[in-house]
Design a protein around this nucleic acid. Structure first.
Length: 151
DNA sequence: GCCAACGTTGGC
DNA sequence: GCCAACGTTGGC
Protein backbone atom coordinates (compact mmCIF):
# COMPACT_ATOMS: atom_id res chain seq x y z
CA UNK A 1 0.00 0.00 0.00
CA UNK A 2 1.36 3.36 -1.03
CA UNK A 3 0.19 6.91 -0.57
CA UNK A 4 0.12 9.50 -3.33
CA UNK A 5 -0.67 13.13 -3.83
CA UNK A 6 -2.08 13.83 -7.27
CA UNK A 7 -2.60 17.32 -8.65
CA UNK A 8 -5.40 18.42 -10.89
CA UNK A 9 -6.75 21.81 -11.81
CA UNK A 10 -10.33 21.99 -10.52
CA UNK A 11 -11.33 24.09 -13.52
CA UNK A 12 -10.43 21.08 -15.65
CA UNK A 13 -11.21 18.16 -13.35
CA UNK A 14 -11.80 18.57 -9.62
CA UNK A 15 -13.01 16.48 -6.70
CA UNK A 16 -16.62 17.33 -7.52
CA UNK A 17 -16.17 15.94 -11.02
CA UNK A 18 -14.70 12.75 -9.61
CA UNK A 19 -17.57 12.45 -7.14
CA UNK A 20 -20.06 12.80 -9.96
CA UNK A 21 -18.50 10.14 -12.18
CA UNK A 22 -17.14 8.01 -9.26
CA UNK A 23 -14.39 6.41 -11.37
CA UNK A 24 -12.17 8.22 -13.85
CA UNK A 25 -9.07 7.77 -15.93
CA UNK A 26 -6.15 9.85 -14.67
CA UNK A 27 -4.69 10.82 -18.02
CA UNK A 28 -2.56 13.61 -19.41
CA UNK A 29 0.54 12.94 -17.31
CA UNK A 30 3.37 14.26 -19.51
CA UNK A 31 6.30 14.32 -17.16
CA UNK A 32 8.72 11.41 -17.02
CA UNK A 33 9.22 11.36 -13.29
CA UNK A 34 5.49 11.45 -12.62
CA UNK A 35 4.96 8.81 -15.29
CA UNK A 36 7.51 6.53 -13.67
CA UNK A 37 5.73 6.75 -10.33
CA UNK A 38 2.43 6.06 -12.01
CA UNK A 39 3.63 3.27 -14.26
CA UNK A 40 6.05 1.49 -11.96
CA UNK A 41 4.85 2.02 -8.43
CA UNK A 42 1.10 2.49 -8.31
CA UNK A 43 -0.98 -0.44 -7.21
CA UNK A 44 -4.66 -1.13 -6.84
CA UNK A 45 -5.97 0.23 -3.54
CA UNK A 46 -3.18 2.75 -3.15
CA UNK A 47 -4.44 5.86 -1.41
CA UNK A 48 -4.62 9.13 -3.32
CA UNK A 49 -5.00 12.62 -1.95
CA UNK A 50 -6.70 14.78 -4.56
CA UNK A 51 -4.92 18.14 -4.72
CA UNK A 52 -6.40 21.18 -6.41
CA UNK A 53 -3.67 23.13 -8.16
CA UNK A 54 -4.01 26.48 -9.87
CA UNK A 55 -6.88 27.16 -7.50
CA UNK A 56 -7.70 29.80 -4.91
CA UNK A 57 -6.82 28.52 -2.53
CA UNK A 58 -4.79 25.53 -3.63
CA UNK A 59 -4.95 22.49 -1.38
CA UNK A 60 -6.16 18.97 -0.73
CA UNK A 61 -9.84 18.51 -1.54
CA UNK A 62 -10.42 14.86 -0.75
CA UNK A 63 -9.48 11.25 -1.23
CA UNK A 64 -9.45 8.74 -4.04
CA UNK A 65 -7.94 5.32 -4.57
CA UNK A 66 -6.28 3.52 -7.42
CA UNK A 67 -8.62 0.97 -9.01
CA UNK A 68 -6.66 0.08 -12.14
CA UNK A 69 -2.90 0.01 -12.59
CA UNK A 70 -1.10 1.71 -15.45
CA UNK A 71 -2.10 1.26 -19.07
CA UNK A 72 -1.14 3.28 -22.16
CA UNK A 73 -2.69 6.76 -22.06
CA UNK A 74 -5.17 6.81 -24.96
CA UNK A 75 -5.15 10.61 -25.19
CA UNK A 76 -1.54 10.47 -26.38
CA UNK A 77 -2.67 8.59 -29.51
CA UNK A 78 -5.48 10.98 -30.47
CA UNK A 79 -4.34 13.73 -32.87
CA UNK A 80 -7.32 15.86 -31.96
CA UNK A 81 -6.68 15.70 -28.25
CA UNK A 82 -4.81 18.41 -26.40
CA UNK A 83 -2.63 15.74 -24.79
CA UNK A 84 -1.71 14.19 -28.15
CA UNK A 85 1.94 13.20 -28.46
CA UNK A 86 3.01 11.80 -31.86
CA UNK A 87 6.06 10.25 -30.22
CA UNK A 88 3.85 7.90 -28.25
CA UNK A 89 2.84 4.96 -30.42
CA UNK A 90 0.47 2.14 -29.42
CA UNK A 91 3.22 -0.42 -30.04
CA UNK A 92 5.63 1.62 -27.93
CA UNK A 93 3.67 3.85 -25.56
CA UNK A 94 5.44 6.72 -23.91
CA UNK A 95 2.66 7.84 -21.57
CA UNK A 96 0.47 5.96 -19.14
CA UNK A 97 -2.73 6.45 -17.19
CA UNK A 98 -4.37 4.83 -14.17
CA UNK A 99 -7.98 4.70 -13.08
CA UNK A 100 -8.98 6.22 -9.76
CA UNK A 101 -12.21 6.02 -7.77
CA UNK A 102 -13.77 8.62 -5.55
CA UNK A 103 -13.51 7.91 -1.81
CA UNK A 104 -14.52 11.11 -0.05
CA UNK A 105 -14.59 14.86 -0.33
CA UNK A 106 -13.09 16.43 2.77
CA UNK A 107 -15.51 18.19 5.08
CA UNK A 108 -12.71 20.70 5.49
CA UNK A 109 -10.65 21.68 2.44
CA UNK A 110 -7.00 21.56 3.56
CA UNK A 111 -5.29 24.63 2.15
CA UNK A 112 -1.67 24.81 1.09
CA UNK A 113 -1.15 27.25 3.93
CA UNK A 114 -2.40 24.72 6.47
CA UNK A 115 -0.07 22.10 5.03
CA UNK A 116 2.84 24.52 5.37
CA UNK A 117 1.97 25.35 8.97
CA UNK A 118 1.87 21.75 10.15
CA UNK A 119 5.11 20.61 11.83
CA UNK A 120 4.66 16.99 10.71
CA UNK A 121 4.52 17.92 7.03
CA UNK A 122 7.79 19.77 6.52
CA UNK A 123 9.10 17.01 4.25
CA UNK A 124 6.00 16.79 2.09
CA UNK A 125 7.27 17.01 -1.47
CA UNK A 126 4.53 19.30 -2.67
CA UNK A 127 5.74 21.92 -0.20
CA UNK A 128 9.26 21.97 -1.56
CA UNK A 129 10.15 25.13 -3.36
CA UNK A 130 9.61 24.99 -7.08
CA UNK A 131 8.04 21.54 -7.01
CA UNK A 132 6.01 20.96 -10.15
CA UNK A 133 5.59 17.21 -10.06
CA UNK A 134 1.95 16.31 -10.54
CA UNK A 135 2.31 12.96 -8.77
CA UNK A 136 4.32 12.62 -5.57
CA UNK A 137 4.58 9.88 -2.94
CA UNK A 138 4.11 10.52 0.75
CA UNK A 139 4.48 8.53 3.94
CA UNK A 140 1.64 6.85 5.79
CA UNK A 141 2.22 9.31 8.62
CA UNK A 142 1.89 12.32 6.35
CA UNK A 143 -1.23 10.86 4.80
CA UNK A 144 -2.80 10.35 8.23
CA UNK A 145 -2.07 13.90 9.28
CA UNK A 146 -3.61 15.39 6.15
CA UNK A 147 -6.70 13.18 6.36
CA UNK A 148 -7.04 14.26 9.98
CA UNK A 149 -6.96 17.90 8.93
CA UNK A 150 -9.60 17.24 6.31
CA UNK A 151 -12.10 15.55 8.62
C1' DG B 1 -1.54 38.65 -15.36
C1' DC B 2 3.07 38.11 -13.34
C1' DC B 3 7.00 35.59 -12.87
C1' DA B 4 10.19 32.17 -10.62
C1' DA B 5 11.29 27.61 -11.18
C1' DC B 6 11.71 23.92 -13.76
C1' DG B 7 11.61 20.44 -17.83
C1' DT B 8 12.28 19.76 -22.72
C1' DT B 9 14.14 20.65 -27.20
C1' DG B 10 17.44 21.05 -30.59
C1' DG B 11 21.62 23.13 -32.68
C1' DC B 12 26.25 22.58 -32.31
C1' DG C 1 27.15 16.29 -23.98
C1' DC C 2 26.44 21.24 -23.46
C1' DC C 3 23.43 24.85 -22.93
C1' DA C 4 20.42 28.67 -24.69
C1' DA C 5 15.87 29.15 -25.95
C1' DC C 6 11.51 28.01 -25.20
C1' DG C 7 7.24 26.21 -23.04
C1' DT C 8 4.82 24.95 -18.83
C1' DT C 9 3.56 24.94 -14.03
C1' DG C 10 1.45 26.91 -10.34
C1' DG C 11 1.27 30.19 -6.40
C1' DC C 12 0.17 34.66 -5.76
Amino acid sequence: MAYWLMKSEPDVFGIDDLQRVQTAIWDGVRNYQARNFLRDQMHVNDEVLFYHSNARPAGVAGRAKVVRTAYPDPTAFDPKHRYYDPKSQPENPRWYAVDVAFVEKFRHFVTLDELRQHPALTDLLVLKRGNRLSITPMTAGEWEVIVGLGH
